[in-house]
């Protein structure tokens, strides 16, 4: 019975509040608690050790190395375009998931869900705008990133392989944008995708109107490169569903995986390029 905590003296308590000592006491209690020490594994004071730990012990930040060359900070050199492309990708992921709550990729519903998003869903139009503009911007920034990497010769050894990954990522960026283009299911969407996918008809050997298709058994307007893409011989509801699945699941997963390789490779190849 002798282990009872002492009842705080009112006078002492008032004194510690007035002098501000209570803040130190509470923060000491909190930062030494099991919950805190298990969550935050190092202090925040600006010491060299903490600067290292801030990167090395954080799952999101540890894509970075702990230290980089000074020249890698120069915006004149990097144009920031790779990072901006990734940020825009993340913006489309966030806004895209929100849109998926309201949008059904079905011929009868898709267009009316767009109208619903536009006029009835709180902030629906802003979310949709953000998704579309981020996607368009991403196409531009990824081109500029590629241009910068070319102009600085950053594809040269030892970074050849990462350039190849980058070309895949450019392609997937365009495909992401293109598959998303159909989803509003309006005239703009349907005919842009019709024009785009009509090209597949002319695929050599595998397209029903392509060169040498007569030498391949079974190629017809219903069974060729284009119909595989569309799930039919025209841009109809099956194409809408196909593009939706490609847009929301398949391409983002593949592109995401390639992004991880792309970023990891930057570190493995010795950080971003620079004068040796």
């Amino acid at each position: 019975m002798g282990n009872k905590p002492p009842i705080p003296d009112m006078k002492e308590l008032m004194e510690s509040i007035k002098s501000g000592k209570i803040v130190d006491e509470v923060s000491k209690k909190v930062t030494e608690s099991q919950v805190w020490t298990s969550s935050f594994r190092h202090g925040y004071a600006d010491t060299p050790r903490n600067r290292v730990l801030q990167i090395a012990s954080n799952v999101w930040l540890h894509l970075h190395p702990v230290k980089i060359h000074r020249h890698a900070l120069r915006v004149k050199f990097t144009w920031c375009m790779g990072g901006i492309t990734f940020l825009l990708f993340l913006s489309t992921v966030v806004t895209g998931v929100i849109l998926m709550f309201y949008y059904r990729p079905v011929g009868e519903y898709a267009y009316f869900d767009m109208k619903y998003l536009q006029y009835d869903v709180p902030f629906g139009m802003v979310v949709r705008n953000m998704h579309r503009w981020a996607a368009h911007s991403m196409v531009i920034t990824v081109w500029l990133h590629m241009f910068r990497v070319f102009l600085t010769g950053s594809y040269k050894p030892p970074r050849e392989f990462n350039w190849v990954i980058g070309v895949f990522l450019v392609t997937f960026t365009l495909l992401l944008s293109f598959t998303g283009y159909l989803l509003p299911w309006d005239q703009l969407a349907m005919w842009a995708v019709t024009v785009g996918t009509n090209m597949a008809r002319a695929t050599p050997f595998l397209g029903s109107e392509g060169p040498f298709q007569e030498y391949v058994f079974g190629v017809s307007p219903r069974y060729d490169a284009r119909s595989v893409l569309l799930g039919g011989s025209l841009v109809g509801p099956p194409a809408l569903l196909r593009f939706y699945v490609l847009h929301c699941i398949f391409i983002p997963l593949v592109a995401g995986a390639l992004m991880i390789v792309h970023f990891w490779r930057i570190r493995k190849d010795g950080g971003i390029s620079g004068p040796l």
């Binding site: 267009y111 767009m114 109208k115 536009q118 139009m125 949709r128 705008n129 998704h131 579309r132 503009w133 196409v139 365009l174 944008s177 293109f178 283009y181 509003p184 299911w185 309006d186 005239q187 703009l188 969407a189 349907m190 005919w191 842009a192 019709t194 024009v195 785009g196 025209l234 841009v235 109809g236």
Partner: peptide, 22 residues
């Protein structure tokens, strides 16, 4: 963001253009 009238396979716009990046 643009939203035109509902998709209509019987009404081809002139010109029909692919997305701008293509």
């Amino acid at each position: 963001a643009p939203l035109e009238e509902a998709a209509n396979p019987t009404k081809t716009p002139n010109p029909s253009k692919a997305p701008w990046y293509f």
